[in-house]
Amino acid sequence: MVEMGPFREYCEFGGDRVYLLLAIARSKENEEVAGDAAPTLRRVVEEAADLGPEAAALEHAAGRFDERYRLYLTANARDALKATFELRRSMDDWLEGRIHGDEGVRGKFRRVDEEFLSTLQSDTCRDETNFVFDLDDATVADRDTLADDLRGHTEVALTRETPNGYHVVTDPFDYSELSTAVDYELKTDGLLFVSYLDG
């Protein structure tokens, strides 16, 4: 069973805010998977109590495949209502294309559920802009140094160990003012590593 405790405190639900859990079979652990075609399973999480059951559902689903999956959570909540309107606009475009003979859109109508999840995950449907500082090949001391440097500018909301280092999540701020000796990659709509799924 995947431990979701830290994320229950991190996630802020309410109104139309939801999060996505994603199980991704990355090429780093699966040599037969091409980097741009990583198999991905997604579930919408509507409230904190659903984090554990949805993670378990993804673990069960991933267990049917040979690949090794990583479980991630969107760092930013998503706006489900906005995603619905975005999908409706896209569907109007598909309909127009279909009327004009575009056979390529036919498949989209067969997988509207997956199209909705893709729309929900898009940048336009995020409901906040938390920053994820991704530290690869970093030590605990690197993580702590960066967190201390960040606290001079913003609140550190969460730190997570990843297979290659750490994720440090903060509220948004003017990061051009950040001065630190720690190497990082900044993601403004990133995914947070939760665990491996070995089911």
Rank of each mutant, 00 (worst) to 15 (best):
T40R: 13
M4V: 15
D189A: 04
H153V: 03
E47I: 10
D183V: 08
D136E: 13
N76S: 12
Y72R: 05
G101L: 06
F65I: 11
K108P: 06
A23P: 03
G107F: 04
R88M: 13
T40V: 13
V33D: 06
L22C: 14
T139A: 06
E96H: 07
V156Q: 01
D136M: 02
G199D: 12
A141F: 12
T129M: 05
V112C: 02
C11G: 05
G165C: 07
V132G: 04
G97A: 02
P6T: 12
G104K: 10
L22A: 15
L192G: 03
A23S: 11
A23Q: 10
G52F: 09
T74V: 00
D189L: 00
L150Q: 04
G15A: 13
V112M: 07
D113A: 14
G35K: 09
D50M: 14
A77E: 08
L146W: 00
P39S: 03
A49D: 14
E59N: 15
R110N: 13
Y175I: 05
D144V: 05
L120K: 00
E114R: 15
H167Q: 08
L146E: 01
R8Y: 12
D148H: 09
F173K: 07
Y72F: 14
H100W: 08
D136Y: 06
D189C: 01
K187E: 09
E155V: 01
V168T: 04
L71N: 12
P6K: 11
G97I: 02
F133H: 05
L117P: 06
E114F: 13
D171S: 04
C125L: 10
R89K: 14
A80Q: 15
E29W: 10
T154S: 01
A34N: 13
R17G: 04
R143E: 01
C125Y: 10
